[in-house]
Simulated scan of single mutants.
Amino acid sequence: MKPIISAEHFLLIGHILSMAFGLAGLLIVLPNPEFVVNLPEFGKTAFAWSMAGGGVVYMLLATAAVAVYAYRTLGLWHWLGFMVPAIALSLCSELLGTSTGFPFGHYRYLTGLGYKVAGLVPFTIPLSWFYLGFSAYLLARAGLASRQIPNWVQYVGAIAFGATMLTSWDFVLDPAMSQTTMPFWVWEQPGAFFGMPYQNFAGWLGTGTVFMTVATLLWKAKPVTLPRTQLGLPLAIYLSNFAFATIMSVAAGIYIPIFLGVILGVVPAIAFYQLARAGASQAAMQSSDEMVATEITEIASVKVPIGVMPK
């Protein structure tokens, strides 16, 4: 078990460092060509690699980190029960969107995010739907499970909050990534929300809701024990990716989406994390009290035979 946890930490750290390296390239190196010219050969090679495949690497590392974590804490069925519909349905949604404009609006991907499926959607995009969607959904599910509410309310709430938290990340990411010095996608029909159509958010919310609903139904096929005290990785994935998007937005002079993302994404993510931990602590204390009460009852029920006195 320890090697698996070490692998999770290694992949998570690699993911965060890759994002930081990518930010440095996009915000410091790329806007200053003279900086690139003065770099040593090693620096020029690293910069070229970063521009060509940096986005692919950080998404692959995040996908691997979340996959290993999900397998360790939830098991094979629940890991694949979320990952397969998340990747498959989001890919279908993206292919439909880039082909017809539904459900996100008219847009197209440029270079920098890897091989494109059907020449339209980079293969890394459905992976990002998986690792961000899983992190958001699990935080919401574990937090709600710590409350004394009916199961169906937990399921519906986890889907609603999970999809909203996923969409909130896109509030911040999409405007900046489509308007940076080196954009990764463009809107062929710009909208009113910092260049994006409002339809985009409906598409994100709808796509997230669909694959989270499918995952919820698949998870019901087998009992699941939610990792209430081991939610550090999904929280780190969510917050680090939100921080990446925030820095990109600040650099582009875009602030309102950050405020919306914090209210609808960051605050609920941290709140659910704290609720899950508090619920686990309360359950542990209750279990301890029950064990003590059981021991007292057992001791009190011991009968000493008449005429037999302890020495």
Rank of each mutant, 00 (worst) to 15 (best):
M182D: 12
I125H: 01
L12V: 08
S50I: 01
A163M: 02
M165S: 00
L30Q: 10
I256W: 15
M291D: 08
V250Q: 08
T180Q: 12
F211M: 00
V262S: 04
I306S: 11
L96T: 11
L264T: 14
T164A: 13
M177F: 07
K303L: 03
R228F: 03
L30R: 12
Y58M: 11
Y115C: 00
T297K: 08
F104P: 00
E298A: 10
A88P: 04
A20T: 13
T246L: 06
L89H: 11
G206C: 01
T207S: 15
G307R: 04
L260F: 12
G208A: 04
K222A: 05
A236C: 04
I28Q: 06
S287K: 10
Y71N: 10
G43I: 06
S287G: 13
V304G: 01
Y131I: 14
F35M: 14
L39E: 01
L231N: 07
G133A: 07
E94Q: 06
G14P: 03
V304D: 03
G97I: 02
L260C: 06
W152F: 14
Q282K: 13
M1S: 15
P223V: 11
G206N: 06
G43V: 05
S249W: 11
I87T: 12
P227N: 12
G43R: 10
L74N: 01
I87L: 03
R147K: 15
M177D: 05
A251G: 01
Q179N: 15
G14I: 00
P305F: 02
L173N: 02
R277M: 00
S18P: 06
I13F: 13
T207Y: 08
R277Y: 00
D170G: 03
T297G: 01
A276D: 02
Q179M: 13
L110D: 09
S128K: 00
A86Y: 01
A269C: 10
Y238G: 03
V262W: 11
P31G: 06
F42C: 05
A192C: 00
G119V: 05
L260W: 11
F82R: 05
W204Q: 12
R277W: 00
A252C: 07
I13G: 14
T229R: 15
I4F: 14
A67Q: 07
F47I: 05
P223D: 12
A280C: 09
V121Y: 13
I258M: 04
T63W: 02
F47Y: 15
G54Y: 06
L76N: 11
A145Q: 11
G25I: 00
L226G: 09
L12Y: 14
A251L: 00
L127N: 11
F194Y: 15
L127E: 12
V84D: 10
K116Q: 15
L12H: 10
G191R: 10
L113G: 04
A70I: 06
